[in-house]
Amino acid sequence: MHHHAAHCETGVTAALFRDKGLDISEPMVFGIGSGIFFGHLPFVKWVGLPITTYRTQPGAVFRKTAKRLGGVFVTKKYRNPQKGMDEMRRVLRSGQIVGLTTNIYWLTYFPNRFRFQFNGHNIVVLREIENGFRVSDPVLDKPVDCLMEDLIRARFARGPLEPHGFMYYPVSINPHPDLRKACLKGMVDTCNMMLKIPVPFFGIRGIRYLAKRIIKFDRLLGFEEACRQLGMIVRMQEEVGTGGAGFRYMYAAFLQEAADLFGSSALRELSQDMTAIGDTWREFAVTAARIIKKRGKPSETFAKAGGLMMICAGREEALFKNLRDVIPTLKA
């Protein structure tokens, strides 16, 4: 039942589909739901630092995947915690597992260092147990127990992106969905998001914008603050739940599966390109860590880190343009 996944939302979505008998992998959900993205929001601060994201906004992957695979889901938010918990119990008693959006700080089964005030963590609840629930958290390698009071707090936490006890579960799922069509939709959507958003903070433009900023980081912000911000960028990239390299490897895994599905060698090549891009992102993380750790070793500079990110931007642009050209040649 429990599958170890790299990312919470894709992991939960895949688990709900699998529970209904459609065997689908996490990367497939990630690709069909157009999960890959890039965004840097210099004016929106979280714990005092600008937000950098390597994926679409929380909830989007689930919504898009459900739509594109033709699954009918019940999604519900609650004002009243008691009502939210009662409804969940009722659904669990009927033998249906449910997905929840929670605040990760209050999930005490996590090691302390993972716990921070973030309202977008997704989990699957399997069944009720004494004074709590059996929870399958896709990010962990086995199911865990969650205390009742923790779960109430986590579901009804306040602050940015309040979950309002968001709960979702499938009513019916198409047992033989048109996977090819869904993949194509996901890929087109992704290409548009990466290439076409006419604001400099998103997609390829966003990567370029941030890369240029990093090159000037220590002059703009001073060394200490520059290190803090750089650390945040790498944290969002390598933090648990990304599959490594800011979801780039997971997307490569999706392209590979899609290549098998379509029997397309072009997609297989793109998957290999994506892996190489992921490796460059990781090199960037290593360089950043060295800048922060060594504090002044001459060869590891902000210019080098920014340069690596610039390379990522160029290669991702080429990749998504190629993908856009490959899509019409694939038969739905």
Binding site: A6, P111, V240, Y249
Partner: peptide, 15 residues
Amino acid sequence: GVKRACYAVNEEGKY
């Protein structure tokens, strides 16, 4: 003791 899941390519080139 928590292990995280990483995507990586095996010897046959499969993720």
